[in-house]
Amino acid sequence: MGAKRTDFIATVIINLIVAAVVGILIFLLAYILIAGLPHVSWSFLTGTTDAFSGAGGIGVQLFNSFYLLVLTMLISIPISLGAGIYLAEYAKDNWRTSLIRSAIEVLSSLPSVVVGLFGFLLFVVKFKIGFSVISGAIALTFFNLPLLTRNIEESLSAVPRNQREAGLSLGLSKWKTEIGIILPVALPGIVTGIVLSAGRVFGEAAALIYTAGQSAPVTNFADWNPMDAASPLNPFRPAETLAVHIWKVNTEGLASNASQLSAAASAVLIIAVLLFNLGARVLGNFLYRRVTASK
């Protein structure tokens, strides 16, 4: 067989492979949207779930997902910002730094179920907080920290050195230079990373099953005092999220229409995640233009 012929065959095979990959994605999206969207209605999006069968709307779960996301981000953004600045600015090139980097690497490669189990052990078993929003948010923070830290460090380090020198040569402190000069330039990359990680957090379930729990007690959406037991903002109530709900309905659900329910919930979840991805891109580009060119 000639080299030309082999080349041709290889090219054909690769094209087939690529077609298959694209086909898989199209199939996935089409299946979820076609199977799910017809069942998505306003009452589904806002309704409550029947605690026994798992049937009914996903209003509480949707709220829980967003609430957990917001709490997670509130905790993890400041910490990873500080840690990212440490790595980009203060860390010296020595064994201690490489140990720290390895630790972050290890954390980022741990399976999310392990992170969830650790959260369970710490908050539910040891501290006896129980399945709660706050336990879930902290478990998600553990899961989110390494990626966010790395993203922030990379974005900060990508800012040209001469910007740092400009700040320092004016007598600004390292900290002020980093916060006031470097951070704004790195912001597009950081924001993109944050929004992408928000999508990941939003779809995460394994870390939440045993931390935020698998039940979504109906809350009183007229009561916004976080201290009240019935308030949706109460951080100590259990909070099944949309992703956990999909898992729960599929594995233990007794609802007769479990498949339709989870298709609809999956469609909502996928659309939310796609919006995060799209948002990351749009917001990143927008900020990039703001930072680099005249406003």
Partner: peptide, 11 residues
């Protein structure tokens, strides 16, 4: 990458 794992499980 963006599709959550529960959705993969469901499919």
């Amino acid at each position: 990458v963006g599709i959550p794992s529960v959705v993969y499980g469901f499919i």
